[in-house]
Design a binder for these strands. Structure first.
Length: 283
DNA sequence: ATGGGGGCCTGCCGGC
DNA sequence: TGCCGGCAGGCCCCCA
């Protein structure tokens, strides 16, 4: 589910009730998600102060004063919901544990953070804050698309000589961090690039042009609080609304929104995943 | 190295 | 109503 904008939306929602706060109690209701939890995870979380809540790619990272960092990935269906009323502004006051509530963090300020994930493609781990970039899941991830390390030369290098479809290369987290199925489709539509085109055959100017488009799509989606299809909720339980701004994703058979274009949006399957595009606007 | 496919899970929706 | 196939925002791992 969650791509960079959704994860960033969750992080922003959690930060006001988690940063600077002590985890008074952590409850872990099963031994694993996608992978086993680290040994004694509940004990290693309980009593720790959250110094900072960060995001790297699609991971949420909570630095603890124990010198460890809690890493959280939402997978396809993961949510982190706030309950309780620490700041006097949240609706969900009396939570009853629900199915698939796997981990709960009770903060000193009275907020409860519940990690719920029906499909359990999500993950949690604890890693040393120092040298965390060596962690298996973080090592080799490409630059943040909204950061200074990302630019035309990054894509140029990744695209050159590649016969894989441009869509696959943009989905590759080693190339650039945080893009998923939705935002790659939307990016390629705005760029006018056919998703099946071989990456190495995209003209240099169009490759460079992808950079500001990727940033624009992601920034607009963050501004909208992410996209809510089925599962995604912000940390306060509200829906994101960027799904109303999709040009192609999920719009198979609908009219292309480009002025003057009479084509219908198509869906194809690439590497087992749906791709939506306009056959007329994207070449 | 690179590209493609399988698999991990649950839930929902449409068709019969 | 119920069953079945297909589909879903991710990503590791294995194979050719």
């Amino acid at each position: 589910m969650p791509e960079l904008p959704e994860v960033e939306t969750v992080r922003r929602g959690l930060a006001p009730v988690m940063e600077g706060q002590v985890i008074a109690h952590a409850a872990v209701n099963r031994p694993d998600l996608r992978w086993p939890f680290p040994p004694n995870m509940a004990q290693r979380l309980t009593g720790q102060r959250v110094l900072q809540l960060r995001r790297r790619s699609k991971y949420i990272l909570a630095d603890l004063d124990s010198g460890e960092t809690l890493l959280v990935h939402l997978g396809m269906s993961g949510r982190m919901l706030i309950s309780g009323d620490p700041l006097g502004q949240f609706v969900h006051n009396h939570p009853t544990p629900e199915k698939h509530d796997h981990v709960m963090l009770d903060m000193e300020n009275g907020a409860r953070i519940t990690f719920n994930d029906p499909r359990r493609f999500g993950a949690m781990d604890l890693l040393p804050t120092a040298g965390q970039e060596q962690h298996k899941l973080l090592a080799g991830i490409g630059p943040e698309p909204l950061g200074n390390a990302f630019g035309p030369e990054v894509l140029r290098a990744a695209f050159t000589g590649r016969t894989a479809p441009v869509k696959s290369v943009l989905l590759d987290q080693h190339v650039v961090a945080g893009l998923g199925n939705i935002y790659v489709c939307e990016t390629l539509y705005r760029a006018g690039i056919h998703p099946a085109r071989q990456a190495g055959k995209v003209a240099a100017g169009r490759v460079a042009g992808l950079v500001p488009i990727i940033r624009e799509v992601l920034e607009q989606a963050i501004q909208a609080g992410g996209s809510s299809l089925k599962d995604f909720r912000r940390a306060d339980g509200e829906l994101g609304y960027f799904q109303h701004n999709f040009d192609v994703y999920g719009r198979e058979g609908d009219d292309c929104r480009s002025p003057g274009c009479t084509a219908k949006i198509r869906r194809i399957v690439q590497s087992g995943r749906s791709t939506f595009y306009c056959p007329s606007c994207q070449r």
